[in-house]
Design a binder for these strands. Structure first.
Lengths: 339, 339
DNA sequence: TTGTATGCGTTATCAG
DNA sequence: CTGATAACGCATACAA
């Protein structure tokens, strides 16, 4: 039988309330009492039963972060969450959510309705899912959104600056002399897709280059999407001299497709991505990309949620963290016509 | 105010016990009663308070999987765990554990001592950590080990067949004509390191090749380890014609080092890895590797733990799942001397 | 087949 | 500064 608060109280010859005070570092306890209780705790190897605490306090001390797909970006996010997770008094539940699967929906409903979690963090595209929104609304648990599709002043959110990042990257390509740049678009229900495309346009406009719809290919934020789109792009009349992947994984797909077709990267075709996932620097010659501040996003999302749970106020402004250009070996001077 | 079991009982005009029976699908309830209760539940939007249930049942309905590092292999494991996680009635807590950090130790102690988890899964090298072992022993919670350092008949464990996989891979290299094969060793406290080295030796012995300690380099299961070791290997008098990375990440490090030194892979030097992580097939020309059955391992570890929690018996034999050779583009015929 | 009463281990109120 | 006692919401002997 494991020791309870009553056992401690008995051994220390005090009331359970006093023990409770010591456990929770409450004031109004003499030093004498405190040590007496502490000795009893040590002697009995007592640890509070968290379920009882949760019941009486009406909270679970659990947070949940909702993920849809499982790519490198998500893994990076998970790693950071795990890393900073034990800084908080909450356990962090990482949960995948697939709207198409009934089991997945039931799991999430249970999680929220049975009050197993105190707060929720969504990642794209979970913030656009109706069930998620409905459950959060009904249960009134605090929500923090990461890169939401449509940021609302009513919901705290945090995102990287995708538009500015794509703008910088496109400028980089233009400076290298590229005039035919293919852009691999991401999924429609991600705001990042739109923002990155917008940044791409910003740079083209600034350089007074024409926006050629033919060079904007439908893709996905994964290897297969980039692979397929790159093959299509290179099969046109006037193939691009550079390919801007919607994210790193799509860029890797593009690189693979190019190598398979016999093009050398970056000598013949430059490729760049977006996100700066872990392996971007580990794959020769290194992927030129935009560093997406996933670490800071994870960190701040978590601390915002915890602050919200403490009842702290927030300023109703979306936090946007700057992105940063990372130039590696996959981009180079464009081949000049006739060269 | 959210509805409780009492509210349901009042609305349905029955006792709370009857409601309880309906919730938990217990027998001895007439169909009439059951529908009446169900109607009340629906009407009130009632969901049981999990904390109360946990308190009275003395269990948390939470499992924990303990991870040390955060590489691609771990990410693959996490992804699989998340994928199959909602098949069970347990929430799955993914927790990193760094023995050197006090906060990390406290987190784990709390998790176990406060009975926040019902069962634990360890991954290397957490199974060798004293605190982990001690906490598990004291609390008597069920434990399942993944690829433990020293499998014990008292603790259920599951692993991939590293020795056989390394044996097959080495044979593959030998068949390609390689006679000077460098092997990048993994960390000492992983059994996988030893097993893979043993399989390497098995194949050398079978081919009656000498075991050259110079060709067995200390490395780590990560990019930097492989990178550094490969640079050292290629700087010797008689550089190897093939490099067998201890795992895929080390192999990627080796490939990067080789490219940086001007060697082409696989034309001049063959490289292979172990694990078959996600990006192994996505990096041109594809990494030849051994497929480590991480999906099956995660799946079975979880189901074993749940079975244990149900009080089911197990046969006290370590489960070893075969590995499988995956030949891609990073290995090729050895360059013959004088060629 | 259904209901009553008790306890799980904590926190919190309020009186001493 | 300290302590008795009442919740918290559910499950479960045991009784009807």
């Amino acid at each position: 039988m494991t020791a309870t608060i009553k056992d401690v109280a008995r051994v220390a010859q005090v009331s359970i309330k006093t023990v409770s005070r010591v456990i929770n570092n409450e004031p109004h306890v003499t030093e004498d009492m405190r040590t007496r209780v502490q000795d009893a705790i040590d002697q009995l190897g007592y640890a509070p039963n968290i379920s009882a605490r949760r019941l009486v306090q009406q909270r679970s001390y659990m947070l949940c972060i909702l993920l849809h797909t499982s790519g490198f970006y998500q893994s990076a996010l998970i790693n950071k969450v795990l890393e900073v997770g034990y800084e908080y008094d909450y356990d962090i539940l990482i949960q995948t959510y697939f709207p198409s699967q009934t089991r997945s929906k039931n799991k999430l409903s249970g999680l929220i309705n049975e009050r197993r979690i105190d707060g929720l963090i969504t990642t794209p595209p979970c913030d656009t899912d109706e069930l998620v929104l409905e459950l959060v609304k009904k249960s009134r648990i605090p929500l923090v959104q990461i890169s939401p599709y449509s940021p609302s002043p009513e919901v705290p959110s945090i995102a990287g600056d995708d538009r500015q990042g794509a703008f910088q990257m496109t400028n980089h390509l233009i400076e290298l002399g590229h005039r035919a740049i293919a852009f691999l678009k991401g999924p429609r229900n991600h705001r990042t897709s739109q923002e990155r495309l917008a940044g791409f346009h910003d740079a083209l406009n600034l350089a007074q280059m024409v926006i050629d719809p033919q060079l904007e290919l439908d893709s996905e934020f994964n290897f297969e999407g980039g692979y397929t789109a790159a093959k299509i792009a290179m099969s046109t009349q006037k193939p691009p001299t550079a390919i801007f992947g919607g994210n790193d994984e799509a860029a890797f797909g593009a690189i693979y497709a190019l190598q398979e077709m016999g093009y050398s990267v970056p000598q013949q075709v430059s490729v760049c991505g977006f996100d700066d996932v872990l392996n971007s620097k580990n794959v020769w010659p290194g992927l030129t990309t935009v560093h997406h501040p996933v670490d800071e996003i994870a960190d701040r999302a978590l601390s915002m949620l915890v602050a919200l749970l403490k009842g702290e106020a927030w300023d109703h402004e979306e936090k946007v963290i700057p992105s940063r250009l990372v130039i590696r070996g996959s981009t180079a001077q464009a081949i000049q016509p006739g060269q």
